[in-house]
Design a protein around this nucleic acid. Structure first.
Lengths: 115, 115
DNA sequence: TATCGTACTACGCCTGTCGGAGTAAATATA
DNA sequence: TATATTTACTCCGACAGGCGTAGTACGATA
C-alpha cells in the first residue's frame, strides 16, 4: 500500500509529535521510529521535517527542550517535553481532526457509487 | 467552531474539487460556493488557491477546460471537466483518505483519557 | 447612477516539506 | 582490533502550494 503524501502529512505532523510527548519527554530519533512503527510505515516523517517541527514548536511554546548529558553511557540527546500550551494546541488539533473527518467524508464517493 | 487550517486544507483541495466535477463540469465560482455550503463554512478554499489548483490539475491531465461562450446572456466562464486520469487520481486520493483515517486515529487521545 | 454579485487574473510572500550532504559518537560484527 | 552499522542529529537550499492584496470587467439590481 502506498504511503501518505507529504501534502497530507503536513496537516498532521504537529498533532502526531505532540501525541507522542503527552506522557513522557522524548527525542527525535525515537519519535521517528515510533511513528513508523505505529503507522506500519504508512506515515513517514522525514528527519529534516521532524527536527524543524521541533524547532518551530519550541518557538511557539508548545514544547521545551533539554539535553540529556550522557548519563547511562548513551549518546547525548535533545529531549522535548510538551508544555501546557502544547497540550492546549494538541486538543485544538484533535477538534480540527473531528471536523475534518466530518467535512471530508462529504466529498468521498459513497460505497455504492461507481467512480 | 473554528475553520480547518490551511495546512490541512492542502491535503484535500484536489479531492474535493474533483469530487464536485465527477458528475458534471463546473467552474470556479460555483465550486467555491458548493464547498462552502456543503462544509457549512468549515472548509473555505480561497479563490487564488482554487484557480491555481485548476491550472495545476489541468497540467497534470486530471481536468480539461472549455469556455462557455455567453450562450444564454450569462457571462463567459471557464468550465472544467474531469478526465479519466482525474477519476483515477480521485480514487487514489480516496484510498489515501481511508489510510489517513486509520493512521491518524492512532494519534488521537481516546475518549477516556485526559489530555 | 451606484452598488453588489459574478468570474476571474496577476504578483509575490510565506510556511513547511524534502533531498542531499555531512558530522560524530556508540554499538554491533568480523 | 578494524570496520560497518546504528544512533542522533545539523545545515543548506529548492520547491510546492496556499494566501493576501489588488485589479479587471461584466451584468443585474436599487
Amino acid at each position: 500500500m502506498a504511503e501518505i503524501s507529504s501534502d497530507v502529512i503536513r496537516g498532521y505532523n504537529d498533532i502526531i509529535i505532540l501525541y507522542l510527548l503527552l506522557n513522557d519527554p522524548s527525542y527525535g530519533y525515537e519519535i521517528s521510529k515510533q511513528i513508523r512503527t505505529l503507522s506500519q510505515d504508512k506515515y513517514i516523517i522525514k528527519e529534516t521535517t521532524l527536527y524543524s517541527a521541533f524547532t518551530r514548536m519550541e518557538k511557539n511554546g508548545f514544547v521545551e527542550s533539554f539535553v540529556n548529558e550522557d548519563l547511562a553511557g548513551g549518546k547525548k540527546r535533545t529531549y522535548y517535553r510538551i508544555t501546557p500550551a502544547g497540550k492546549e494546541y494538541y486538543r485544538t488539533k484533535c477538534e480540527e481532526w473531528t471536523l475534518t473527518k466530518e467535512v471530508i467524508e462529504k466529498f468521498i464517493a459513497g460505497e455504492g457509487s461507481v467512480v
